[in-house]
Design a protein around this nucleic acid. Structure first.
Lengths: 247, 247
DNA sequence: CTAGCTCAGTTGGTTAGAGCAGCTGACTCT
DNA sequence: AGAGTCAGCTGCTCTAACCAACTGAGCTAG
């Protein structure tokens, strides 16, 4: 076996590349089925094992999606793997005494302040209404017991940047939010006061609605100042306390 | 085998998590050696094959680094995998007729304009001198034949944002640059006029040096306007032309 | 004595074949 | 006609063997 003529040496590293090329060349869109493992074995001239290892790598990058007993498909290519990597990197660094969580917040702050100033006065009315509704909902959730606050928070930031009409940008924003949220909860961080968050979200909406770029930027900055303060009070805790879910 | 007591069912998905936890719990820093494959087999109660597939996934996320005949080590956790994923996603989308490359440029533009305004007047003199030198070097390279221009360009953007003293932020900036550059060259994009780039880089340095945030933002925007124009003229070419390197 | 080589032992890379597990669809029995 | 069953895909896991890259101890030649 493995007599593909030119690939007698080196295999795994290139297998991934060849599978990627296969996707490109065949113009396969997300969700399209990939050849089965036996087919890939023959097509690539490699053993089952090598093919599977290559697929595992591609799966980790979100390029491929594997469903047991069903088949292998072109992945959604979402930024989920990036979130995973970013979150792990942050957690690992945190336990080694680095201020990685703060850096992550600063990253979000830098990007969002940069975007919101361009957004001021250019958010469609529909989105503004939706943002209002999201703040309302968070106030309700705060009054009840706090369930679902995180989702509402996430939705707020996602909706805010929808007007940029750049899918990639929106996804990157969401990815950063997800990474931060996962790390913050895994590390048992101090939850924020929902009412403060609501007030700051409200101010962001008003600032954007008014079209005042400076005010909008200031609103975002204050919001993140609040988040930053919480992060700074998060001490290094014992890693075994973070067993709530994954790393 | 596989009689770890509780893990008779389900294996692979958790193997990665367990290896990650091992890194966290042992406070392993980048470059620290991981247990060898046989050791991991015993520790995790899984076969060599499963262990290797898990490691392949972690390697794809940059969490682990595997060196043939040497050992397995904690990875640098750089954003290289993100670049990989982003680049592939952009290329794949491009060939399916989507404007993914333009989106990528817009992403860079949005982030950099947001950052540069905060940077104005706060870049250390040493960095400014270095930036001047980088523009000088690019002018030389342009006069000679163009070799190494891309590296100088990359170094310019990297140096510019070094003053933010946030390693993560710098890496994200570089990652976006890398992804764009790889896609642009793979797609056989129109190379920019180096002299225009030099002039625009010069203007960015001067704007930042003067401390004028508005001017700095304008300079960045003009620079990216130039890049955007080039990208828009990049037609969809045949995928077989992009064999210069990887996908 | 040192420079260089060789060789055994380590580590990861690859292959092979067998059996397990999840899903689908057609076939059969009621 | 409907529900259960079974054969057939699919990917998942294990075992066992051998290949390839690297290290370091020991030997040999200069």
């Amino acid at each position: 076996m493995c007599l593909a003529g030119y690939a007698l040496v080196m295999a795994a590293r290139d297998l991934q590349e060849r599978i990627k090329r296969l996707i490109i060349d065949r113009r396969l869109a997300s969700g399209a089925p990939l050849p089965t493992e036996p087919e890939l074995m023959e097509h690539l001239g490699a053993s089952r094992n090598s093919v599977r290892e290559a697929l595992k790598g591609l799966q980790a990058m979100g390029i491929v999606e594997i469903r047991h007993g069903f088949g292998t498909y072109v992945g959604t290519m979402s930024l989920a793997p990036m979130i995973e990597g970013l979150a792990f990197r942050t957690v690992a660094g945190h336990y080694r005494g680095e201020d990685t969580l703060l850096q992550l917040v600063q990253l979000r702050e830098a990007v969002e302040t940069g975007l919101v100033s361009r957004l001021a006065g250019r958010v469609p009315e529909g989105d503004l209404v939706e943002l209002d509704a999201l703040v309302d909902r968070m106030e309700e959730q705060a009054a009840r017991g706090g369930d679902g606050i995180a989702d509402t928070d996430r939705a707020f930031h996602a909706t805010l940047y929808r007007g940029l009409d750049n899918a990639l940008l929106g996804e990157v924003m969401e990815a950063f939010w997800d990474a931060f949220h996962r790390v913050h909860t895994d590390l048992g961080g101090v939850p924020q006061d929902p009412l403060v968050t609501c007030r700051q979200h409200r101010e962001i909406v008003e600032a954007v609605r008014s079209g005042d770029a400076i005010r909008a930027e200031e609103a975002i900055r204050e919001h993140f100042g609040n988040i930053r303060a919480r992060v700074s009070t998060t001490g290094t805790q014992d890693p075994h306390r973070c067993h709530n879910e994954r790393v």
